[in-house]
Design a protein around this nucleic acid. Structure first.
Lengths: 183, 183
DNA sequence: TTCCGCATGTAACCAGTTACATGATTAC
DNA sequence: GTAATCATGTAACTGGTTACATGCGGAA
């Protein structure tokens, strides 16, 4: 389980509310981890019980109170401990791959259309990642520390999307009707 | 949800027992989908209730009875229907990426060691995939139908592993102490 | 004699999703 | 007026994992 620890990383960078954390997952850390706000609230409660974070209630008028979460020493220690441990390589599940595999038992053209849609989705994401790269890391060779690590994760996202696009293209080339010459 | 449908694909190729299906997930389909035998038994029960498969009990002496599952017409129809529908692109969760991102809050050298271990794991898998490719698809340009689709999924596995290895290498290059020249 | 393969499952648990609920503020 | 943003959560459910249980045959 790693959501706890993804949150620890996020809080180590800076304190925030459950709402904040959920939004951060939509963005930067979100290349390789996501969580809904419901899930975040649940886990934060557990983390507080474990003594990894403290809560400060911040009254607001007009809108509901905020709860700012801060890492405790115990939280930092747990984070360091976890970082030093092994990470299980997770199995990549791909529904699209299952459809490709089974394409002969359905309509191959529909599968091809879906692959094309995925290719476009991946291309869109790639563009947005590349834009982030340009904006946030214009000179990567100088990076060090946390900023470098952030960059490396982004690079992972970029390389993943590129791979996905290439794969979709390969599928499309072999699934789509051959150029008329052969007919 | 797609385990049901992954099983339908597997059964469309050929009938089998729960045990067989679980093992097939370890192999061919397993590049992009896996399931334990417990999970398979559970889902098969559901699928039988839905009328997608029929069960034939095959008595054996010495060992427990087998249950061979066969697709029904309804099962085939459901498979065709599902194949024609959209596939949600799933979010790739990577614990390793979270560790890389948080490396500054722990021991960077341990993270690097773990990245190296992952690179080796991916390299091993790549080798085995490439061996499968050579053995099962010596002449890819002639493939058509189900065999082609199988090949394309394998190609996806190969490209995924290659991407993972490249990413690990990029991380290792920037995380590890610079060649002494610069010091 | 010990482990692996065959072959079935149950039970407890855990992580994550979806739906629902509340309610003010601000921008279009 | 309508939708989005801020901000919290509960409840029901689903999919998947882990641990446990049984028991024979054959290989090392």
């Amino acid at each position: 389980m790693a959501l706890e620890h993804a949150i620890l990383v996020s809080l180590a960078e800076r304190a925030g509310t459950g709402y904040d954390l959920a939004r951060r997952f939509d963005k930067s850390i979100g290349y390789f981890w996501t969580a809904t706000h419901q899930q975040v609230y649940k886990v934060l409660a557990r983390m507080e019980a474990a003594g990894w974070v403290t809560v400060t209630v911040l009254a607001q008028d007009g809108r509901p109170d905020k709860k700012r979460y801060d890492l405790t020493e115990a939280g930092r220690a747990e984070l360091a401990r976890w970082i030093g441990g092994p990470a299980e390589p997770e199995l990549t599940r791909s529904e699209l791959a299952v459809k490709v595999r089974g394409a002969s038992y359905g309509d191959v053209r529909l599968v091809a259309a879906e692959v094309e849609r995925h290719r476009d989705l991946h291309a869109e994401r790639l563009d947005s990642y590349l834009a982030n790269e340009k904006r946030d890391f214009p000179d990567p060779s100088r990076l060090r520390g946390a900023k470098l690590h952030q960059y490396l994760v982004l690079r992972g996202g970029i390389s993943y999307e590129r791979g996905a696009i290439e794969w979709c293209d390969e599928i499309l080339e072999s699934l789509r009707p051959r150029p008329k010459g052969k007919r």
